[in-house]
Design a protein around this nucleic acid. Structure first.
Lengths: 109, 109
DNA sequence: GACGTGCGCAACCCGATAGTTGCACACGCC
DNA sequence: GGCGTGTGCAACTATCGGGTTGCGCACGTC
């Protein structure tokens, strides 16, 4: 089972995180739950563009819609981020371990 | 300065990580240093496509070129991954902290 | 010194996606 | 019940990004 499953459901998360506008959105949501309209007032893009970004973020599990009266606010979810962080750390550690082993092998020779 | 610096140099990393082909490349590089040509033999894409991906990964600091004779092998660097993981974890924790505070506030009311 | 293998452009194609405008609808509130 | 605000959906545009082919070159090896 080498490493085949490492990147399974994690790629959409990175894809979502690999965009400046979405990060800006996330930063705002990190401070308060906001609707698409509210975000549109704070960012230099239209409400619809933001709605699309929110859809991407929601698909990635980074954000969750919360109905408040007749508006839909979005909430930043730390759980998925933490999961992802752990996965990343594991992979990074594995790489470094291999390099250390190599280095040691060379020194022994 | 709220959270302005959180996503600074980190976005390119996520961008690099948000692609299946690049993950496949990284998995191979996690097991051994390989050249673009060597990778091309293992993946269903051309050497040039891989070269582009390697450029992206190198820009993100996830990979490093190593000259071996006349070929250029690429080495996976765990450091940047670990950095990124820590940053992610911090952000996720902050989000959850806010939610916990909110929840506690509601319960007190 | 010639051959072969690996590398690095550059141009081009196409699908995905960030962004826009415009409209329709539905829900709340007065 | 009507008005306003907030959402959702659809069509369209343009840029970006992944992929290809093709070529030229340089370095290593023999």
């Amino acid at each position: 089972m080498t490493t085949g499953s490492t990147a399974a459901g994690v790629v959409p998360v990175f894809n979502a995180l690999g965009d400046d506008t979405r990060w800006t959105i996330l930063q705002h949501l990190g401070e308060a739950d906001l609707s698409a309209s509210a975000l549109a007032e704070r960012l230099p893009v239209t409400r619809q563009a933001i709605a699309k970004h929110l859809a991407v973020l929601a698909d990635a599990g980074l954000v969750e819609p919360v109905r408040v009266g007749r508006e839909v606010r979005y909430r930043a979810l730390g759980a998925r981020l933490t999961e992802t962080a752990r996965a990343l750390e594991a992979v990074g550690a594995a790489w470094d371990r291999r390099l250390d082993a190599l280095k040691r092998l060379v020194e022994e020779a």
